[in-house]
Amino acid sequence: MSETPVDAEEVEHVAELARVDLADDEVDAFTTQFAEILEYFEALDEVPEVESEADLVNVMRPDEVTDGLDQAEALQNAEETEDGFFKGPRVS
């Protein structure tokens, strides 16, 4: 990325958007690696606009009721539940 170099601040911003905390040494490593990888991606600039035909179309079906997971099954992998609900972090 010659015109828009990736700096640590930008990596931290993207990490915040993606909801992934990073340790300081991860920020440093990613800053160097992202510069290299994004420079490689730059070559996409040479790709012409290409008309594409979609391979897939919408497929309609009747809206019929079928069995799904029951509440216990849906909740079985949650660390915390309460009264049949998922329980998220407590907001302080």
């Binding site: 909801r19 990073l22 949650a78 660390e79 915390e80 998922f86 998220g88 907001v91």
Partner: peptide
């Protein structure tokens, strides 16, 4: 995000911060 499945780490506070720590 550690709520419906996955490890949550048991963090509390701002949801976005808690998710970001669980994902780290």
């Amino acid at each position: 995000d550690g709520v419906r499945y996955g490890q949550s780490g048991g963090y509390e506070g701002n949801w976005n911060d808690a998710f970001a720590r669980a994902r780290e």
